[in-house]
Design a protein around this nucleic acid. Structure first.
Lengths: 324, 324
DNA sequence: CCACTTAATT
DNA sequence: AATTAAGTGG
């Protein structure tokens, strides 16, 4: 039997928001290692792979491997019945034809019990080779989402070019063309092949001054329209706080896309073109993790990965052939 | 003739939001006791009964009983022309074929006058017996609304079971089943039959402090177009006028659904099943009152009641027969 | 963190 | 009209 407790219903909700549009049905593969879901998207173009590791549940018990065939639309509906901070317990006996969900309010004065019918889904378990990629880009997930959304307004596909200077996303369409260039924030412009998996956005550790990371500013989004005139005697706006940091929102995630920076680990330059429709979908996972990593090699499917506290969510997508 | 002044247009707006989807036309029965509206819903399944008591109007005068046949859709449209905190005066001469509405801003610098055509509606006045119910549940109206909404995602009907431990709402449907159990907050698990009607949301009238009425903040009309820059030392909008105020939220109102708790007065256990479509509709009255009371006896129509300052809004709905 | 409000969309 | 998404306020 399975009994898994999740501290925050919010995590599950975000996960489902992230994938429900891509995948409508899938097996939750429950093992003693955790819960995994792997599925091709509805049009069999992209692959979604979710892993929730046992150790990161509030409590986890799974006596026997079992695939729970769930309709994600239904699961989403049921999760809507939970408040974000409810504790969620997933329960399934060994012979289950339904999955039990219990939502307990933090104050324990309210208990919701739901039961969702399960379905039999043919397991097409796809082995995913643990590939080494020629380029790994780590960046703010919300920045990634923004870029996908922006470029999707122009064209159907995006070309992603990673060089050691930075990464360029560009798209062409009827209205016009557009491109966004992100420069790498700090050190690494080259990574050993073996280390390529490590996402590390590591700040230079030598920067011993507290001052650290003043304001890296990816700079693309920084519109300077805002302080153009008569701020001479105007004390407002944060112009004054200068370096002192004022302790303010430096942490604060400024506009939620900052503070992360861009790191590029490059074995070889890559240039690949992808459908924006899918990338936009992948980007919906942004609420799950501050960072996203894009793993690419020429002529090989892209891996878009979100690491969050409870596990990992991966998306794979084959490039378009006609790379310009 | 009728002349009735209502302090806050907001109350009327909320009332109409609450019932307009259920009832499109009805008679406002004006007497010296106040204004009442009673009507079957459009599909003749549920009964809506509204009472606004004369004493709770800012001023009230009604020389002669008269039923004013109104189209609630039209009335809603006209009320949209009032700001929430406008004072509304309803006027009708004895021979009226139209209802006059006057909206006055609190500062009396703006007056809107509207006139709505009336219609003749056959009065099917239904006597509602003042039943004693076996179970009376009082709970947060927003919690009630949330539960109805959640369960409506699963099934068409909800079974409500009240026992002295608490009240359980449960629903079954294609995706699965769900139930929400609310535990009783405090003392009462049993009440005398005669006391069951007391829903007591009563504000303490002994609250001799004049604190009342809280000025809602009109704020819409406040032109701020001109002060956008360089008067930094300007003393901060009208924050000052609230005299002692500040003391107001001593109550704290936790998060708006809390603080109310669940109370169950039980003569006998009950278990009844109702159409969620209607309950969801009833629950739209939540903005009118912090609490709602559900009055039930087996095989008898449910009474859902909202008590607010100006009166009472009641909904009646017969249970479904097949109570499992 | 929760809920209400508004806006946009189907 | 209903649903959904995003923003705002308590």
């Amino acid at each position: 039997m399975l009994e898994a407790r999740v501290k925050q219903a919010a995590v599950l909700k975000k996960l489902l928001d992230a994938i429900k549009e891509l995948v409508t049905d899938g097996n939750l593969d429950c093992t003693d290692e955790g819960i995994a879901l792997q599925a091709m998207d509805n049009s069999h173009v992209a692959l979604v792979s979710l892993k929730l590791v046992a150790e990161q549940f509030e409590s986890y018990r799974c006596d026997r491997n079992m695939p729970l065939g769930v309709n994600l639309t239904s699961l989403t509906k049921i999760l809507k019945c939970a408040k974000d901070q409810d504790v969620v317990t997933l329960k399934a006996p060994d012979d289950a034809d339904s999955l039990g969900l219990v939502f307990e309010s933090p104050k324990e004065d309210r208990v919701g019990e739901y039961e969702m019918k399960l379905m039999d889904i043919d397991q097409e378990h796809l082995g995913i080779p643990d590939t080494q990629y020629d380029a790994t880009i780590t960046m703010s997930s919300s920045e990634f989402q923004r870029i996908c959304r922006d470029l999707a307004a122009l064209g159907e596909s995006v070309k992603i070019e990673a060089s050691k200077e930075g990464v360029r996303f560009s798209s062409e369409g009827e209205v016009g063309n557009g491109s966004v260039l992100l420069k790498q924030s700090a050190g690494t412009d080259r990574g050993g092949a073996s280390s390529s998996k490590k996402s590390n956005v590591k700040r230079d550790p030598d920067q011993e001054d507290e001052e650290e990371e003043e304001d890296e500013k990816p700079e693309i989004d920084e519109e300077e329209g805002e302080d153009e005139m008569d701020e001479d005697e105007r004390p407002k706006k944060r112009k004054a706080n200068g370096k002192a940091k004022t302790a303010k929102k430096s942490k604060k995630e400024e506009s939620s896309s900052d503070d992360v920076g861009v790191s590029i680990i490059l074995e070889k330059q890559v240039s690949l073109t992808f459908s924006l429709k899918y990338l936009t979908n992948f980007a919906k996972s942004a609420p799950l993790a501050r960072e996203v990593s894009l793993h690419m090699s020429n002529d090989v499917p892209l891996l878009v990965q979100f690491d969050f506290e409870q596990g990992t969510l991966q998306f794979f997508l084959a490039p378009k052939i006609s790379d310009e």
